[in-house]
């Protein structure tokens, strides 16, 4: 199956839901014009990233008007996006949602909340406790958010849970200028994306935002990577755009025939050894 994927490399306004939903509508129209089959927005794309005390102010319940609007849009094009989720218990999550045919198919709550250096997430967000793949009309997928992917365990779980597509929603702050042709952080992310795509023979859809918040930039460079590690679409650095790329989902089958990593992976061994380590550490 040929699948046209759109990555919304947007510059959301910080804590301004109405302005951001307008940006989503605009990108949605662009995506429709290009016959995009799946549209992915970045981490906290609906709200902006460095929210601090705004977190509860921009949090959305599932029945909120904005998510209802996105559900409606998903009847035409399935949508994944980052947002602040407010649970029934009034806990606030840095979450990603996948919407299809007007329904919520999956919500992932970010597990690894960076709280170091410039990051403050554990101060404001509750921590997710699950990594699960889910079924979409295109096949089995998993959704991870930014720092989640810096823990190979999350990608490994998604792989074992049968994900053929890894949707990575990101708001990665730019830093590290050395003599290279790109920021140090961009180089690191591109290495991660390519490595995971190849190790787990799956597609990576990496949607990263652009813009500045209180002087901190977000570098963009959204990309689509095939299970063989080929980049089929690449967003520019620092510029807003809808990044569109076409993939052939049959690549997954072909890659898994030639590279039998999933077949050969010994889940029992991994579990046994991890249990042994767990017992040793926590007994």
């Amino acid at each position: 199956m040929i699948l046209k994927v759109g990555l919304g490399q947007i510059n959301p306004a910080l804590g301004n839901l109405s302005r951001n939903i307008a940006i989503y509508e605009e990108l949605f129209t662009l995506a429709k014009a290009q016959a995009v089959d799946l549209l992915i927005f970045p981490e906290l794309g609906l709200t902006g990233y460095f929210l601090r005390d705004m977190v509860p102010e921009v949090a959305l319940r599932e029945e909120s008007a904005i998510l209802t609007r996105l559900k409606d849009m998903s009847r035409e094009i399935p949508i994944a996006t980052g947002f602040v989720e407010e649970s029934k218990e009034h806990l606030f999550y840095n979450a990603g949602i996948y919407l299809e045919d007007g329904e919520v198919r999956h919500i992932h709550r970010k597990v690894y909340l960076p709280t170091y250096g410039m990051f403050d997430e554990q101060r404001y967000f509750a921590r997710g406790k699950m990594v699960r793949a889910f079924d979409s009309k295109f096949g089995r997928a998993a959704l991870l958010i930014c720092e989640d992917l810096w823990h190979p365990s999350t990608a490994y779980i998604a792989f074992q849970d049968g994900a053929d597509f890894l949707l990575v929603l990101s708001s990665s702050p730019g830093r590290g200028v050395d003599l290279g042709e790109k920021l140090v952080i961009s180089d690191t992310w591109e290495t991660l994306n390519k490595t995971y795509a190849k190790l787990f023979s799956q597609f990576i859809f990496f949607a990263n935002r652009v813009g500045y918040e209180d002087g901190i930039n977000f570098w963009g460079g959204s990309e689509i990577i095939t299970p063989e590690g080929q980049q089929v679409a690449k967003g520019r650095y620092f510029q807003e755009e809808l990044v569109v790329g076409e993939i052939d989902t049959n690549d997954i089958r072909r890659t898994r025939i030639s590279t039998t990593l999933l077949r050969d992976e010994d889940l029992d061994l991994t579990l046994r050894e991890l249990l042994r380590i767990h017992q040793k550490k926590f007994a």
């Binding site: 510059n11 200028v177 050395d178 003599l179 042709e181 920021l183 813009g211 500045y212 002087g215 930039n217």
Partner: peptide
């Protein structure tokens, strides 16, 4: 090491900073 940087990227980042933060 650390002072020798890609000056074109640095320029782009700082020009973007001024445009963005003044504009918003």
């Amino acid at each position: 090491v650390g002072f020798s940087v890609n000056l074109e990227i640095l320029k782009q980042l700082l020009v973007g900073f001024i445009q963005n933060e003044v504009g918003k």
